[in-house]
């Protein structure tokens, strides 16, 4: 190796600056082009970064679109507290939507299984929420490094009527120029953080002092072990099995979703520095902690075809 190659000469900041500028560009382009955009806000770290970038894109003006949270009613309690506090403190226009028919039917991950619960309370709910709001574009925090099928995702990802994602209908993306026009019934998903990695997210959170849900940091929490995964017992809806007893273990979460479907990792990392250090050692991909993705390698792809974000 030449000496220039061996030294680390590009500060991580320079990479983050470039990624930030790209995301801001995408936000502005979509906000200028679409009639009624909305930002999908899932309360996780990616959403926190996405929101921060949206604020940067339109400062000193306000974020010119509402935030939409699809609440499955099974989110961690700390997530909901964080969501409401963030909306209040930043003066955001937050829309919360729940699939009421699902609630009425008593849909839960325990009674209906992971797949059905996710389909009804998340995928169908999202479609309903987007239709009712009349939104023609929705920003999301998806990244190409998240999962293998995401590597081919467009920044401007076209959805056919019924929010279907058709791989073969996706538009070619040249330069920074996006074709943002829509035919009847089509909508767009827009992913400003397509080129970010999980490490970039955390480094950016640290650099910009972005507030995230405390669940990302280690703390003793009541968990049970099922199928080798640690699941937190967040409320009394959790049906404990015969002889099962929640134990307090020091755990944190790499991603956040419905609490019965989100596995914790054992960790002592209770600060950002510890967390970044741990990440550099533990290189498991973050979706490994999501129980819904484990159903065959391409299952994210098939969910997306149904309209999952």
């Amino acid at each position: 190796m030449t000496s220039a190659a061996a030294e680390t000469v590009v500060a991580p900041d320079a990479v983050l600056d470039a990624l930030e500028a790209e995301a801001i560009h995408i936000f502005r382009e979509a906000a200028g082009a679409f009639r009624r955009p909305v930002m999908l806000y899932s309360i996780g770290k990616d959403s926190s970064v996405l929101l921060h970038l949206a604020r940067k894109a339109f400062a000193p003006g306000k974020v010119p679109f509402p935030l939409l949270h699809v609440d499955t009613t099974w989110k961690f309690r700390e997530m909901i507290e964080f969501r409401d506090r963030t909306a209040r403190e930043l003066g955001l226009d937050l829309v919360v939507y729940t699939n009421q028919e699902g609630v009425d039917e008593g849909v839960s991950p325990f009674t209906h299984g992971t797949h059905e619960h996710t389909r009804i309370m998340k995928t169908v709910a999202l479609r309903q929420a987007l239709d009712r709001g009349g939104y023609d574009a929705a920003f999301g925090g998806a990244r190409r490094d998240e999962e293998r099928s995401r590597a081919k995702e467009r920044v401007f990802s076209l959805r056919e009527p019924g929010h279907r994602w058709e791989p073969r209908k996706q538009r070619p993306e040249f330069w920074r120029t996006a074709n943002t026009s829509l035919a009847e019934g089509q909508t767009m998903r827009v992913f400003p953080m397509s080129n970010w990695t999980e490490l970039d997210i955390w480094r950016y959170i640290q650099r910009e002092s972005i507030d995230v849900v405390p669940l990302y940091f280690a703390k003793p929490r009541p968990v049970v072990e099922r199928g080798g995964q640690l699941i937190m017992v967040d409320d009394d809806r959790f049906p404990l099995r015969e002889g099962e007893q929640p134990q307090a273990r020091s755990v944190r979460f790499r991603t956040l979703g419905c609490y019965p479907l989100t596995a914790a990792v054992e960790s002592e990392a209770d600060t950002l520095d510890d967390l970044l250090a741990e990440m550099l050692v533990d290189r498991r991909s973050e979706r490994a902690g999501r129980l819904i993705d484990g159903e065959g390698g391409g299952s994210m792809e098939s969910k997306k075809a149904e309209g999952y974000f």
Partner: peptide
């Protein structure tokens, strides 16, 4: 990436991947 490609053993679409270069460059 895509399931269709698995089946056919070919690459149909453009995929984007990130490489951490030793210089810190991406």
């Amino acid at each position: 990436g895509l399931e269709a490609e698995h089946a056919q053993g070919i690459t149909i679409d453009v995929a984007y991947r990130h490489l951490y270069l030793p210089s810190g460059r991406r």
